[in-house]
């Protein structure tokens, strides 16, 4: 049946980080990313410090470094742009391996790459230590309208079911000799998608009936209360607080050296 790929990002471990309430971790992640984002890009040591902080979290959360590294691949298409900057930016040039590169461009590329990577790693850690459904509880706790989190919860639940239906339709197509070769086959695929949409729509109706039958009146009952103690908040504040200090120090360095 379902391959359960929706859980793929979560790494089951027992650690302090895993046990923290989801909304604390979300706030901590956002705080960390903000601190990284405002850091002046010329202060290279600051980014090294951030990387060390994340490495520390990775160790505490008992996530293998290899796992984090492998997942960082997702970043590549987003930072591809950074590699062009040294070639296209204007201003002072510097000779590197016989290529004349823009100094500003190089710094720009470094900034995007460093900040992007740190943000991606922070999110990877959040996803690895928090189950998707508690993540949803967390954002709801932080004030996202329940309707949106309900939609996300259902999407999460039915992703496998829909993927299964899609696979069955593909097998049915293949069983009758269909193989998508070029653009002309798009018509067949579009029809399949239409059929899939209808099936999902009908399933939605049936699920709604089932919910009504069990007393649903527009609000999901709150089953798991995700409260956070002061200690847990303090603990999860450690990362963004440290990052904040680094950012402040970086700016201090910029001002005093000027």
């Amino acid at each position: 049946m379902g391959a359960g790929h929706a859980h793929a990002l979560y790494v089951r471990r027992d650690s302090v980080v895993h046990r923290l309430p989801p909304h604390c971790k979300i706030v901590a992640t956002v705080g960390f990313v903000l601190a990284v984002a405002i850091t002046p890009r010329h202060e290279v040591w600051a980014f090294a410090a951030y990387a060390l902080l994340l490495a520390g979290v990775t160790v505490v959360a008992r996530i293998p470094f290899g796992t984090v590294l492998r997942r960082m691949v997702i970043e590549i298409p987003f930072v591809a742009f950074a590699f062009f900057l040294p070639f296209v930016a204007r201003g002072e040039r510097v000779e590197v391996l016989g290529l004349a590169l823009s100094v500003d461009g190089l710094w720009g590329a470094f900034g995007i790459l460093a900040k992007g990577t740190l943000g991606v790693v922070a999110s990877i850690l959040l996803a690895a230590t928090t189950e998707p459904r508690t993540l949803l509880l967390g954002v709801e706790r932080l004030g996202l309208p329940p309707l949106l989190t309900q939609i996300a919860t259902f999407m999460f639940r039915y992703l496998d079911v829909v993927a299964d239906e899609l696979r069955r339709m593909r097998i049915a197509r293949a069983a009758r000799g269909f193989e998508a070769r070029d653009l002309r086959d798009a018509k067949v695929l579009a029809r399949s998608l239409g059929a899939l949409f209808l099936r999902c729509f009908e399933r939605g109706e049936r699920v709604h009936l089932a919910m009504l039958s069990r007393g649903y009146d527009g609000a999901m009952p709150v089953l798991a209360e995700v409260g956070a103690s002061r200690r847990q908040w303090a603990l999860s504040a450690a990362l963004p607080a440290a990052a904040g200090l680094v950012a402040a120090a970086a700016w201090m360095a910029v001002w005093t050296l000027r």
Binding site: R157, R206, A210
Partner: peptide, 28 residues
């Protein structure tokens, strides 16, 4: 009136079995 529908995937819409079973009584 407790209706058990034909396709369990229609009936089980919560993330875990426990939460799904709790859905009805919690609504009560």
């Amino acid at each position: 009136v407790g209706v058990v529908f034909q396709d369990p995937d229609d009936q089980l819409f919560m993330p875990t079995a426990r939460e799904d079973v709790a859905f009805g009584p919690a609504n009560l």
